[in-house]
Write a protein that binds this DNA or RNA. Sequence first.
DNA 1: ATAGTTACTGACTCACAGGTCAGTAACGGA
DNA 2: TCCGTTACTGACCTGTGAGTCAGTAACTAT
Lengths: 206, 206
Amino acid sequence: MAEPRFQRRKEDRPAEITQAALEAFAEKGYAATKVDDVAKRAGVSKGLLYLYFKTKEDLFKAVIRSIVSPRIDALINNIEETDLSAEEFLRGPFLTFAKSIPKSPVRILIRLMIAEGPKHPDLVKWYWDNVVSRATKALRSLFDKGVENGEFRESALNEFPHLLVTPVFFSTIFTIVFKQQMTLDTDRFIEAHVDMVLGSIKAEAE
Amino acid sequence: MAEPRFQRRKEDRPAEITQAALEAFAEKGYAATKVDDVAKRAGVSKGLLYLYFKTKEDLFKAVIRSIVSPRIDALINNIEETDLSAEEFLRGPFLTFAKSIPKSPVRILIRLMIAEGPKHPDLVKWYWDNVVSRATKALRSLFDKGVENGEFRESALNEFPHLLVTPVFFSTIFTIVFKQQMTLDTDRFIEAHVDMVLGSIKAEAE
DNA sequence: ATAGTTACTGACTCACAGGTCAGTAACGGA
DNA sequence: TCCGTTACTGACCTGTGAGTCAGTAACTAT
């Protein structure tokens, strides 16, 4: 009695395929990844992949969405529901999150968005609405709250909350591009920036 | 007497072709740009292009090098030979340079390095040696000079001069990826960051 | 003029990868 | 155990674009 050559697993296939695709894209980038390789990695034929995803581009979008959504939701809930002071939150949960990015698989997505974004305007739109806007808003409310309760002075961070996260992007890209020659300690780099920001916005005792 | 169908211009061809390639890559990215299109843009046949550049990859590398070199040389000479104080230099020539990046054609190269870098390790090595290392060193010496002459206190910027330029990368990428939905005022964004940095490292009068 | 040199052309080749589809076999129900 | 359904396979088709090369015409030297 021979082993069955394959199993029917309709429910699990999409997740298995997007996971395989993420790994493949991470290694080679989008253009250089063959659909056939993704299929092999997922233990599936190319034909099946095309039953679940209409085109390679469709697969790409599914990968981004499936990885990004849960993470960004978690961060934003975290900001909204914390009972820490603004400074405690920034030095605690935020810093932990920020330091993890350059080391986690998510960093790949940042590269993919930069590299492939211009070819997929609707994906960029989705990313803007679901990630950038929401994260910006959450951060801004954090700084506003800090000002309201007297922790912080009014500063450029209220207008440009992005100023907080610039070193996260910088070290992520650095890590990806210069992984051979890198000696940058991304943890201390990001910490130093957060120190500087807090130092410049904390209300002086007066 | 008919016009000649073409002219022989051995000297000028390489520069014309790399210029055309930069424009094409800027519009479509590397993978999506056809060698034939680059040739057409340069007013040249595909065959001629292959006389000057062995492969498409070779052309890509030539584009990066030819655009980057003169700019980085200018900046570094500027730092080394200025007779401004460190703060004056940062608020003057450096800020002008920094603000120009997200708007200039060079921003394309940043995207190309991120997107294609991993496939061209020798190009990344060249970029590290000729751009990143030299720029880092020049900036570090600027902060060191500031400390020596009592303008600045010793700070994280002496160890991580990169902290100065993070918003330049951030706004460049933002501009490229989110050009449709962008409302970020990159000039004021970068200025606000430089203000913050200077505010946090200036020696207090004591 | 004319012959020699070489910058230049563009039709061609060919490998490759996205996408298709006719057939196959796993599974569920009777 | 057989039949119907459909998840799944993989050989095939096809457009595309990188790279080639035999031929052509612009220039040069005599």
